[in-house]
Design a protein around this nucleic acid. Sequence first.
DNA 1: CTGGATCCAGGTGGATACTG
DNA 2: CAGTATCCACCTGGATCCAG
Lengths: 136, 136
Amino acid sequence: MSQRHTGITDQLTPPVDATPHSHPLADCPLREVLALIGDKWSTQVLVQLGAGPRRFTELERAIEGVSRRMLTLSLRSLERNGLITRTVHPDAPPRVEYATTPLTNGIREPLEALAAWADRNRPAIAAARRAYDTHH
Amino acid sequence: MSQRHTGITDQLTPPVDATPHSHPLADCPLREVLALIGDKWSTQVLVQLGAGPRRFTELERAIEGVSRRMLTLSLRSLERNGLITRTVHPDAPPRVEYATTPLTNGIREPLEALAAWADRNRPAIAAARRAYDTHH
DNA sequence: CTGGATCCAGGTGGATACTG
DNA sequence: CAGTATCCACCTGGATCCAG
């Protein structure tokens, strides 16, 4: 990934321009984060677990539209990356509880900011979409 | 990509637990935001345009691994949702420039926060992954 | 240069059935 | 309850060719 044709292998961040307010976004971390929680269900799981530990079936019921397979895959992925914990209780009817981790707590704030942005700009986005759809 | 015909209109009502406590994290906005920039290339485009306007071919060269088709689709999606502008200059060799919008500026900060989180916790995530892979 | 249109291989995820 | 296994329809995206 290079800028223009300098021929020089530079950083992954784009060239810094003259605009004073422009902070180059490091894109690699962004891709990593999207690899963690960018899929359809992971954020939903995090939202649910943000309100306290949940059992598998509770999550399945709470997250509308998720299949058992996809919920399992999402939970495994989140667990593997340290974003949630999975604890099996040795009960007669099997009981498994999922919960957040310190890692999760750190990511909550950025996600909230993102959600807040979406909330604030919902009208603007809808308007842009209407305008585009009208003209095309 | 966001031109799936289901779009965001297929959104399902959020869980809304019975308790009067409000969730700190509204999930619907999160799904909306992921529908906008959750795919593989949109964030890369935003990163590039964050450093200034870019032409189609410049983006294609700068974003490693993207195909013309996917770049086009991503650009169309971002444009439709008001996150970038597309201006055609009436030059002899066709010249199109993409640029950010006020909407983009608003989302930059949350995205940076997310990237910063990923950067800070890269070791923790890697460790969690190693631990998981070892045990399984 | 900036795309659109088409074809097709490969991946994704729902449905279903089965297990400890 | 909490998954796993399998099958398969569908979607995604790369490759290629074409056009303004």
